[in-house]
């Protein structure tokens, strides 16, 4: 049962946010389908994707809500923050304006999610280094100042995409292990599914505590 393709012991809810055209849907598509979508249409409202990953031997299902970057959908986007365990905040390294707006995205995220939500900053389109408008160092500093994880990625080549999603999951899982994240709270964005994870889920958790080096 626990080795079946659809079994998992946790569900983590993610949200992807950021300005229009920074490549949120493409990141999601690259992560779930491992393909680059060349002419991706504007997201209307929200889109949804899932993938099952493994962290420290635990199968985790990521439920990813990809939001519309357009201003007219801001109310829709805001309604999806609640109960997100992970927030991927995306900007485009070739467009400074998308970086400048990060503060407002961060304000939204901080006020609409809970304190244990892991926020991961992604500088997308790093394959277009020639057209770079935001330096790595600058963004790294912004991330450090605000306590965010940071990586530059490319939805086109797939570089660092996997890492961003997995690192976020590892951090969330770590919070669960440390007891900082309350699984029973509806707002935590994490669901435990012992029935699907096999009977040994809780003991596995104990064993993996030592193995988890993240």
């Amino acid at each position: 049962m626990s080795t079946g393709p659809y079994s998992y012991s946790y569900i983590f809810k993610y949200i992807i946010i950021g300005d229009m055209g920074v490549g949120k849907s493409c990141l999601l598509h690259q992560f779930t389908e491992k393909k680059f979508m060349a002419d991706c249409p504007h997201t209307i409202g929200v889109e949804f994707g899932t993938r099952i990953i493994e962290v420290s031997g635990q199968k985790i299902k990521l439920q990813i809500w990809d939001t519309a970057g357009q201003e007219r959908f801001r109310a829709v986007t805001r309604s999806y923050y609640r109960g997100a365990a992970g927030a991927l905040m995306v900007y485009d390294i070739t467009r400074r304006s998308t970086y400048n707006h990060l503060n407002s995205w961060l304000t939204d995220t901080r006020s609409l999610t809970n304190p244990s939500t892991v926020i991961f900053l992604i500088g997308n389109k790093c394959d277009l280094d020639g057209q770079r408008d935001v330096t790595y160092e600058e963004a790294k500093q912004f991330a450090d100042e605000n306590g965010l994880k940071f990586v530059e990625a490319s939805a086109k080549t797939g570089e660092n995409v996997e890492e961003a999603f997995l690192e976020t999951a590892k951090k969330i899982y770590q919070s669960i292990q440390d007891g900082r994240l309350d699984l029973n709270a509806a707002e935590s964005g994490v669901q435990h599914k012992p029935s699907h994870g096999g009977g040994g889920a809780s003991s596995d958790q104990q064993n993996n505590k030592d193995a988890c080096s993240c």
Partner: peptide, 13 residues
């Protein structure tokens, strides 16, 4: 998908 309503309904998963 275009409505501003949270995805997590009060009734649970």
């Amino acid at each position: 998908i275009k409505l501003p309503c949270p995805p997590l309904e009060i009734f649970g998963l």
